[in-house]
């Protein structure tokens, strides 16, 4: 299986502090991967680097067929390549309706002129309705996103990610602030998504990771400490040391 994303030996130093230290990582085209690690391990910074928000000091980030380098692209170009990202905190456009939020995320040309010419079509409206139904927001489609509950905002954001149909989905701590039922729904959704695309899930919660039932990468001090099945990594003495040793 050839890799969809391949990260080779990246490092990033913030004010003398090595947040990412010679990190390598790769993921296949249809694969679910959990990334765990203690606070400050560099999980969010890793996502920042892949999505173009942060430039690494060294290393390579290669993408898809032909191994294009992502380091030469800006955030918007990387997003258009098909990398979607869900932030830790739900970030939806609160002053706009659920429908408007979803419409913006729909697959379509992104340039100003193309957006100016864009008109809603029966197709686009059906797609918005379908997405809203998928994330359980059918009854709220004309409401402002700002009025939704925290969990509903998370779902709206997931809906927006689905709308753009990314090839790689980066999800930062999706379970934070969710109820048990919502967590279960979320794991089901993530597993289903990973059938057709690559999904990287950053998570603290071990139960949640266990339910994902996938390969796990353990980050510590900016590099990979262990990789394998959850049972495999939790038997690793280094991992036990990191998680239990402090």
């Amino acid at each position: 299986m050839s890799a969809l994303l391949e990260v080779r030996g990246i490092s990033k130093t913030f004010d003398g502090f090595k947040a990412i230290n010679n990190l390598s990582f790769s993921i296949g085209a249809a694969e679910l991967r959990a990334v765990i690690g203690p606070n400050g391990a560099g999980k969010t910074t890793f996502m920042d680097i892949v999505t173009g928000k942060t430039r690494p000091d060294e290393g390579e980030v290669l993408w898809a067929e032909g191994s294009k380098s992502l380091l030469r692209m800006n955030e918007a170009q990387i997003a258009r390549e098909g990398i979607g990202r869900k932030f830790q905190r739900p970030t939806v456009f609160e002053d706009q309706t659920v429908a408007e939020n979803l419409t913006m995320a729909l697959k379509a040309e992104r340039g100003p002129l193309a957006v100016l010419r864009w008109r809603p079509s029966p197709d686009s409206e059906a797609r918005v309705a379908e997405l809203a139904a998928e994330v359980g927001l059918s009854d709220h489609i004309e409401r402002k996103a700002g009025e939704l509950s925290h969990g509903q905002k998370q779902w709206l954001e997931i809906g927006m990610l689905l709308a753009s149909d990314p090839r790689l989905l980066l999800v930062d701590e999706p379970a934070a602030g969710m109820t048990l039922a919502e967590r279960e729904q979320t794991t089901t959704l993530l597993c289903r998504l990973a059938e057709t695309r690559a999904v990287v899930v950053v998570e603290h919660d071990m139960d949640f990771v266990r339910r994902l039932n996938c390969r796990v990468t353990v980050l510590h001090q900016g590099s990979v400490l262990a990789e394998g099945s959850l049972d495999h990594v939790t038997r690793n003495p280094d991992v036990i040391e990191v998680y239990l040793g402090r």
Partner: peptide, 21 residues
């Protein structure tokens, strides 16, 4: 949609970038 994107840039420019705009 253009207005939608413009207002979104006002409220959270970073997020709009990650949508590919």
């Amino acid at each position: 949609k253009f207005g939608s994107v413009v207002r979104a840039i006002r409220d959270d420019e970073t997020r709009v970038r990650f949508l590919g705009y």
